[in-house]
Design a protein around this nucleic acid. Structure first.
Length: 480
RNA sequence: GGCCCCGUGGUCAAGUGGUUAAGACAUCGCCCUUUCACGGCGGUAACAUGGGUUCGAAUCCCGUCGGGGUCACCA
């Protein structure tokens, strides 16, 4: 087998969506598995729609995910001479020809074909123009494109690693354009030339390109190039089985990042959309997928992405994440929510993160769950109030709690718990009668880390202050 | 519309002629527990459909239906 060289070739017309990310990932896994090279190429021959911002977004997205490349980015727009030369040669060899048809003429052709109930194909009007005619039109300065002479008979077969052989009848293709009138190559033409020029061994791309592949093969054959191997990965669909778009919520890796997902969780998840290790274990490192990744194990079915599973995976990665890294990841979310400013106490935040992380699934959720550590003004959970604060005698229990907590000198997890346990015994109440209202008083919530963890983190002063405030609140409730 | 791809529970997904049709997420119930989460145990739930081939089909063939893609001087 020749050296493995693969490429990811986005067109810079938007950000990196999860489908593109998965295509990049599968290329990358394949390259790394085979000790091959990964090449990043930018298919920017559409001058109208290509933007630098979008390219930057795609590169950022890839880097953030940890997908790197060995060569590139290579911009097609900077290699125009290459395409032009090959196109001119094809014309010289009689394998392609100049076409001077105008947009209006083409539209008319299409309309007539439609009327006749035939597919809207180019009729080959300029296919047999004489040299004189060509010269005449050229001299007149008429705009032209270059079309490939497609054989009218025979079949073109795509040998696809994932799908097997796929046959196409050549009669279903017309003489398609390879060079546009602005001297830019069309996608199919530029792709073939670059893939050849860059010595790409395996073209791994989305299924939407499968129908284009026979055309590309026709170009390979006209040019006399050796063909690469093809593998078309199924598409990722929205939950309603339609094509992914903005209305389906987060679809780009940037959006998932802003929602608080970790890159390794996203990588793990999108790998799972079409591939699974031989042991069936669904949580795995990239080392493992690199080691095991082969194309013949890639699924043919289109996949619908399910954020629930992504979220579950993210929770696992959050729980296993290095605490310093996790803290650093959470801080921007905290700042964003206005919970902390630029001068923050890193060690304090780290302690809170470590108390909270195991019950949250995204960085965003962690930041939300941390609010009461920084913010004294919070509302009590409504259901919690009904359940715990409106119970007879809670105010007295909490008053007793204040007294015992006040006597705790070393205000830590062990000592506060000891004080509480003693109080429960003394008052002869159930632990929940004290724990639940206290939790609500100091955090406003009915769930969260262990009660004494919260107390220790909050410190004596704030803990007691908040319980006092809750007592007042409860007395107010009774007064009404 | 022509051509092409795909069709196993709500979702991902094992399975390649003989299985009680795995597993994971989600969902439901129970257990653990000061709460929530984690974890553990258990439940509900699938071979799109009709014909073949075969002793025997989720697995092979054909039709139908459904979904998707593509047919541009977009990529």
């Amino acid at each position: 087998m020749r050296d493995v060289r693969v490429r990811f070739a986005p067109s810079p017309t938007g950000n990196l969506h999860i489908g593109g990310a998965r295509t990049a990932l599968f290329n990358w896994l394949f390259a790394r598995h085979n000790n091959g090279k990964m090449i990043l190429r930018v298919d920017d021959t559409d001058l109208e729609r290509s933007t630098g911002d979008s390219m930057k977004a795609i590169i950022d997205g890839l880097k953030w995910l940890g997908i790197d490349w060995d060569e590139g980015p290579i911009y097609q727009s900077k290699r125009l001479d290459l395409y032009k030369n090959y196109a001119d040669n094809l014309v010289k060899e009689g394998k392609a020809y100049y076409c001077f048809c105008t947009k209006e003429e083409l539209d008319e052709m299409r309309n007539e074909a439609q009327k006749a109930g035939k597919p809207p194909m180019y009729t080959g009007k300029c296919r047999n123009l004489s040299a004189d005619e060509v010269k005449k039109y050229m001299d007149e300065g008429k705009k032209y494109v270059i079309r490939l002479k497609v054989p009218k008979e025979g079949k073109t077969i795509v040998h696809d690693i994932i799908r097997g052989d796929v046959e196409f009848d050549n009669s279903t293709f017309d003489d398609f354009i390879i060079m546009k009138s602005d001297n830019m190559p069309t996608y199919n033409f530029a792709t073939v030339i670059d893939d050849y020029d860059l010595k790409i061994s395996h073209i791994i791309r989305g299924e939407e390109h499968l129908s284009n592949t026979p055309k590309q093969i026709l170009i390979y054959e006209a040019l006399g190039f050796e063909k690469p191997n093809f593998a078309h990965v199924s598409m990722i669909l929205a939950p309603d089985r339609s094509k992914l778009s903005k209305r389906h919520g987060a679809t780009s890796v940037q959006e998932f990042r802003d929602l608080g997902y970790l890159p390794e969780a996203i990588i793990n998840y999108i790998t799972l959309l079409g591939w699974i290790p031989s042991d069936g274990e669904e949580v795995f490192t990239t080392e493992k997928s690199i080691k095991e990744f082969t194309l013949d194990r890639v699924s043919k079915n289109p996949a619908i992405y399910d954020t629930k599973k992504l979220t579950w995976l993210n929770g696992i990665y959050i729980r296993n994440c290095d605490i310093d890294r996790l803290t650093k990841e959470v801080i921007p979310f905290l700042i964003n929510k206005g919970l902390i400013g630029d001068n923050y106490d890193y060690d304090y935040i780290k302690k809170i993160v470590s108390a909270i992380r195991e019950r949250e699934k995204t960085l965003n959720e962690i930041a939300d769950a941390m609010s009461y550590y920084f913010n004294d003004e919070f509302d009590y959970d409504e259901k919690g109030v009904k359940k715990y604060f409106e119970k007879n005698g809670v105010d007295n229990i909490l008053k007793e709690a204040i007294k015992v907590l006040d006597k705790v000198d070393d205000f830590n997890l062990v000592e506060t718990e000891k004080a509480y346990r003693d109080l429960i015994e003394k008052l002869d109440i159930k632990s929940g009668d004290l724990f639940h209202p206290t939790r609500l008083a100091i955090s406003g919530r009915t769930f969260g880390p262990g009660l004494f963890d919260i107390m220790e983190l909050l410190g004596k002063e704030k803990t007691i202050e908040r319980i006092k405030k809750a007592v007042k609140y409860i007395e107010n409730l009774k007064g009404e």
